[in-house]
């Protein structure tokens, strides 16, 4: 019988106490960050240094060792290094990173001996066409000579500037590029 009344008083008191807690939250500032538009600073500028966003390659630092490609567990990175038959010069002709597949594990960044491959704070990778998500750091037809360790240190572009130039204002969700019916 005592337990009966104790149950009642316990439930009433705990309900009242709970309501006092929830009511106090009405007056508190919400934590929500209203990305992408209703924020004061670009969210990319406020993310921490070691944030693992989209990968970018500073081609001026790349020595074409392909360590990143070998390290990647899911084959996100595709690097091709060709040797010019006449001048015997090595040239990087392809450096593609498929942002749609990358799981941001960071193994490739750890493998990179020069620090040319790095994570950025850019993360907004969404597009109407998945093929647009392949980031091509070496344009077709304009191969890049790999960095030579003996050469003086090149001017390194700031982290994130390469990938943001590549994706302009972030990937826009635009309708998929027209695909021809017959290949």
């Amino acid at each position: 019988m005592i337990k009966y009344f104790k149950n009642i008083s316990n439930s009433v008191l705990s309900i009242l106490e709970g309501m006092a807690v929830t009511l106090s939250w009405i007056f508190r500032r919400p934590y929500t960050v209203q990305w992408p538009d209703k924020i004061e600073k670009h969210i990319e500028d406020t993310l921490p240094e070691r944030y693992r966003g989209l990968l970018e390659v500073e081609t001026r630092l790349c020595i074409g060792c392909m360590a990143c490609m070998r390290e990647c567990p899911i084959g996100v990175i595709a690097v091709t290094v060709e040797r010019n038959a006449e001048t015997k010069e090595r040239l990087i002709t392809q450096f593609d990173i498929d942002a749609s597949k990358c799981m941001a594990c960071g193994l490739c960044v750890e493998a990179c001996p020069t620090g040319g491959l790095r994570h950025t704070t850019q993360f907004a990778a969404a597009d109407g066409d998945i093929r647009n998500l392949v980031l091509r750091y070496v344009e077709k037809g304009s191969p890049v000579a790999p960095h030579s360790p003996k050469a003086p240190a090149p001017v390194v572009r700031p982290r994130g500037s390469i990938v943001s130039a590549k994706i302009k204002n972030g990937f826009s969700v635009r309708p998929a590029a027209k695909v021809s019916e017959k290949p």
Binding site: L16, E17, M19, A20, V21, L23, S24, I26, F27, R28, R29, P30
Partner: peptide, 28 residues
């Protein structure tokens, strides 16, 4: 109830300001 509500609100106010630099108060 009002006293308890205000107590719950005050309990976090100073910490919030210290951690975020913003006042905790936000009109409902």
């Amino acid at each position: 109830q009002l006293v308890r509500t205000s107590f719950n609100y005050r309990a976090d106010r100073a910490n919030y300001r210290k951690m975020t630099g913003q006042p905790l108060w936000y009109p409902p």
